[in-house]
Design a protein around this nucleic acid. Structure first.
Lengths: 109, 109
DNA sequence: TTCATCTGTAAGCTCTGACTAACAGATGGA
DNA sequence: TCCATCTGTTAGTCAGAGCTTACAGATGAA
């Protein structure tokens, strides 16, 4: 795991609303509009946060057809487990060098 | 651990430069000016990042006198270990309610 | 005294993450 | 038809994290 991937997870979880979203999804999958109502935010805003969670691989969206024929996008939690220690960080920084990234913040692609 | 504390750690680690700082400190304590040189940033900027790391409890600063009488602020890593799972998040959200932190979307059941 | 090093902070700029308002398209039902 | 629901996107505002420049004070050595 590179530091870039690690950072995607860290900053992905690093927002109160996104923690709340994780909390809501813990009990089962929910479609977007319903989720927006539950956490009390607008849909466009929710989309933005979901995008970050999805990029971090913490959440997954699936478009389905409801019984009454309406398109519904269901969001579900992807089980995750990360250990945060000094070793984790060192491993990430080391993985960067293997990939040719000389420093944590470098962007060559 | 409340979600606020969890977020302090997540956003505390959630920056490339701060990961790099952790990496530098892993081999041993370093004083501020030297650390700034190693990670290649200005001292004022480093102070800002150190402040965040310190608030998250990941790092500790100690002012000491060098052999030649100069004041030196040594930064050292505080060993940490956090597990990031859905349960962690749920526990944090639960801890919030115990503390009476109410939000807009809170349920009272 | 002057220089080089260390400490610490304040003022300001920039850029992006966070957020709102408004749009456009599709479906089922009254 | 019109209304209610769902989907998705764009344009724009705003606040704060991130960063730079500049300051001020202390020490030891030349």
């Amino acid at each position: 795991m590179t530091s870039e991937e690690l950072l995607t997870v860290l900053t992905g979880l690093g927002h109160p609303l996104r923690l709340q979203i994780i909390g809501e999804l813990a009990t089962g999958r929910v479609h977007v509009s319903e989720l927006a109502r539950r956490v009390g935010v607008s849909r466009p805003l929710l989309y933005m946060h979901l995008e970050r969670l999805e990029k971090a691989g913490l959440v997954e969206g699936r478009l389905e057809l409801s019984p009454d024929g309406k398109a519904m996008k269901y969001i579900e939690l992807r089980p995750f487990s990360f250990t945060l220690t000094v070793s984790t960080v060192l491993a990430a920084l080391h993985a960067d060098q293997e990939k040719g990234h000389s420093r944590a913040g470098d962007r060559s692609d």
